[in-house]
Design a protein around this nucleic acid. Structure first.
Lengths: 212, 212
DNA sequence: CCCATCCCTAACCTGTCGGTCAATGATGAC
DNA sequence: GTCATCATTGACCGACAGGTTAGGGATGGG
């Protein structure tokens, strides 16, 4: 009898196979990885893989599912109490840190996304939804910061957010794929913040609300 | 007898094969494209491909060679006469236009580059060299513009150039892979120029050289 | 003890891959 | 005409891919 919290043999081996597949798919891609290789890497027979997963495709979907688990936007309630500028900082840092911590899966998805290889619609949509949500959050906070006179009003919030995210993406690609020293990212982030909050040269026409 | 400028049958078919291979490799990748498919696409027998190119790898190298042809930095002599700010504009526009015009090969290289699949060292180096040259050019012009008081001095030129290129890359990826409306790129470029030349709020301490 | 169910494997099947080969038009030199 | 070289082909090959199958140990209920 299987009681909760206990691992059956089957679950164990399934887990091993998944971990091996993640390693191989992520580092060499879907087509370049054979089921025999996955079997060897997981130290099980090839047939066992097909016992757990009907097809190679199904194994791949399970891998995607597993990789997608940490993809959530963690923007806690408490953020509401922060000043708009700090909220933006938190968003940006969250983005950067997430990519730093999940580099391998991020580049995996990025690669697949770029190569236009089919991923089930639901996955691309799920990622896309997160991305759009993040951008909306950022846009909103920029608008807020502008209204409070903490941020240059010279550009519309959504344009600004779009630009900021493009810049972040470019910088993170430098980090992930061109193995730039992290120091470069830091100084670039400083620049980005300068762009967002820096010399507010345009006179704030109507006074911003009192800071609380 | 084969005279110069004349195409032998052999060269014709070679060209057809190359064009077919470019189409397939670029749209579906190396491993996902079979020689039989290339043969079908080029309307020749598979054996003929192996008569022209010893191996699939060699065909791939020929494809890379062909794709790399337009990769040159066209920064003409006459640019020297332009004001530093205009030179920067010209560099940035050149970059953007190049990617716009060579979208398919750019994304092809980008994908390969990211996936870490082996490309012969010489190719990655060649692209890398161009990229670095471009960045050096940009850095230099930014320094010049700073000296002439045309550009904010708040950041070191190489940091600024690095940031500008990251932003450009991010924006161009939006354009290439997320099929964003080009209008987004334009307004983002306006922002970028604003960042570079915009409100020069910091007082130019020592007077710039007279503009000529 | 026996039997059903669950895990798991070695061996096998079939299709496709990159690559080869013998044969055969075309083409021009002599 | 004939002969060598070039350009091209269909048929073929071994290797390996994804996937199947028949069966063997373990395990627990009756």
């Amino acid at each position: 009898m299987v009681t909760a919290g206990e691992q059956t043999q089957s679950q164990d081996s399934r887990e091993e196979i998944l971990k091996a597949a993640i390693r191989l798919f992520a580092s060499r891609g879907f087509h370049e990885t054979s089921m025999s290789e996955v079997a060897r890497e997981a130290k099980v027979s090839k047939a066992l893989i097909f016992w757990h997963f009907k097809t190679k495709e199904e194994l791949f979907l399970a891998v995607l599912d597993k990789l997608l688990e940490p993809y959530v936007i963690d923007f806690a309630e408490e953020s509401e109490k922060l000043d708009a500028r700090e909220q933006i900082r938190k968003l940006v840092n969250g983005y950067v840190n997430f990519v730093r911590e999940n580099g391998s899966s991020v580049s995996f998805f990025l690669r697949r996304f770029m190569s236009g290889e089919e991923m089930p619609e639901s996955f691309t949509q799920q990622i896309r939804r997160l991305y759009d949500l993040y951008q909306a959050l950022l846009t909103d906070r920029i608008r807020l910061a502008q209204e409070q006179g903490l941020c240059s009003r010279s550009t519309q919030p959504h344009v600004m957010a779009n630009f900021v995210m493009a810049a972040l993406n470019g910088l993170l690609i430098n980090l992930l794929f061109m193995s730039q020293e992290p120091g470069n990212l830091d100084s670039a982030l400083t620049m980005l913040y300068g762009l967002l909050f820096g010399q507010l040269s345009d006179p704030a026409a109507d006074a911003g609300p009192p800071s609380n």
